[in-house]
Design a protein around this nucleic acid. Sequence first.
DNA 1: GTCTATACTCTGATAGAC
DNA 2: GTCTATCAGAGTATAGAC
Lengths: 201, 201
Amino acid sequence: MKTKDKIIEAAKATFHEKGFEGARMQEIADACGVNKALLHYHFQSKEKLFKAVLLGAMMEMFPAVLALLNSNKPLVQKIESVVDLYLDFISQNPRIPLFVLNEMNQNPAFILDQLQLSNQKPLVFINQIQAAVADKKMLPVGPFHLIADIIGLCVFPFIAKPILQMLSGMNEKEYGAFIAERKIHITQLILLGLQIDVNKI
Amino acid sequence: MKTKDKIIEAAKATFHEKGFEGARMQEIADACGVNKALLHYHFQSKEKLFKAVLLGAMMEMFPAVLALLNSNKPLVQKIESVVDLYLDFISQNPRIPLFVLNEMNQNPAFILDQLQLSNQKPLVFINQIQAAVADKKMLPVGPFHLIADIIGLCVFPFIAKPILQMLSGMNEKEYGAFIAERKIHITQLILLGLQIDVNKI
DNA sequence: GTCTATACTCTGATAGAC
DNA sequence: GTCTATCAGAGTATAGAC
């Protein structure tokens, strides 16, 4: 692995955990056994290194989901796949959601600029929902309610892990099992809750 | 309003928005037209001022909800009330959830210590759910799935506001209407999704 | 209680040798 | 490309006058 890549990996770990303000260039340098000055040689400034990391996180989070939402799968299958894809992704990158949510609220302009470049909107998915509603194959629901529901239900147990763990008294293993249960739980909640006709769409 | 209270108010605004690392004592001092040294006179250190603010935010977030969950209302009415209470609270304090979630992940020990002092767990609510499941008045669901669902569904549209707004193209007013719709939407989603028998419990 | 002035530390960034 | 050494600025905290 080239040095520049080692730096990026270490920077990911540090920035994901502590955010821009909380991260220290020294910590990143130490984490990959390299001198602080070398970070500046490769990335010029803390901000540029950070943006590289942030962009990477966004690129892992959004395009795959948006592509899936705009695929030509039937609605029910699409919902199941999104939940599946998202939970798997977050399980392997549990710190990314809070990291991205934070920086998005801290500096919306940068993120939104990047996203608008790849001007992806879940238009196919939106149309499918509106059609299903018109055909009375599901309850009348604004498409963005459904999108917020799915993502929120997937993400929340990860970003609120400490408090849920304390309230429930689950240990790490039990909490892992809890997360694993959510694939079925969320899908069922959405399909039943919006009375989506699973046989016809 | 006494100076000490003015400082706390300014500190709330700054810490809620920028977190511990991002906040500057100078900014807080400026915001209440007071000298920086005075913050240290009243609160000794940045960390102590921060903990006062964090504790305040937690005390606004948790006790009311826990008390409601442990009240003797019937289950359905309780779910409706929690959604109601939570959405109202967050609407008036939209930055608190992300603020608390962040600091909880950054330094779980402090928050969990504070919460354990007021050793509140939603035991009554948990019992109600288990009883309803046993009586086949709702689908079999672990109580903490339901808790995660409700809070996640309420909180997510606030912490993900920038991206949802961009994806949907809603302006501020439209987004406000979207949030307002969620009270009914979330309640309906939960009750139908878990097939809760609204007449009997 | 409130201010001015200042001390001290931390950290991002640069210069220059190798 | 990588290191050592150092600078410059920012930011928390304190001393001391009023």
